[in-house]
Amino acid sequence: MMVFTLAAHELRRLFLSPLAWAVLAVVQFILAWMFLAQIELFMQWQPLLQQLDSPRGLTDIVAVPLLGNAAIVLLLVVPLLTMRLISDERRGQTLSLLLSAPLTMTEIVLGKYLGLLAFLGIMLALIAAMPLSLLLGGGLDFGLLAAGLLGLALLLASFAALGLFMSALTPQPTVAAVGTFGALLLLWILDWAGGLAESGESAALRGLSLLRHYESLLTGAVDSRDLAYFALFILAFLVLSIRRLDSDRLQN
């Protein structure tokens, strides 16, 4: 119960700051631009597509690239949302309100995390509304779209978990934002290092890369390995955040 109280409080605070509104507006505007550009592309290709044996549909050409681009845009934006979660409270000395209330560390961390997830859920719904609007004039591959949205949801949840941990590390929100962005970008491009060589190391790096797991969901393949990767990623950073806050109390 307390987790939801905290989550509601977190969501409320997000919407009391202009940042959340600005982020929603900017993300929506940029993605709408990309969405429209993609639709234009589809219109141009339509005659060609009809001649193919297995025509690639609206979902392939409009929705999947949109979700792919959304991931990149959100990679830039999520650190701005996560940076204040704990570091701001530490700076404003409001953390002691939570620490002296009858709450466990786990409740505090989960509450903050769920509050942010709720915000990201709103963002995801707004993004999903764009491809769904195509239903007015065409058909969609719902399986593919659902897999892509699931992928984006898991990806955002992972971003948020890492951002929460970074925010727990430092009282400076900007440092938390830069750290989160750097770590996410590194995880994104981790598989570049392996190059084309099929060595064990490059396979391991590919296995750690966020992008790889997201891409496979975008193709419509819901693989339990990818789901497990995201679940472990989120769990690991939540546990690390709890540990970090606890160690704060134990030693300074």
């Binding site: 605070r13 404003g92 000395q93 309100l97």
Partner: peptide, 10 residues
């Protein structure tokens, strides 16, 4: 606490 833990935006 020494510095009251207040959320200024509430």
């Amino acid at each position: 606490p020494e510095q009251p833990p207040l959320y200024r935006e509430l």
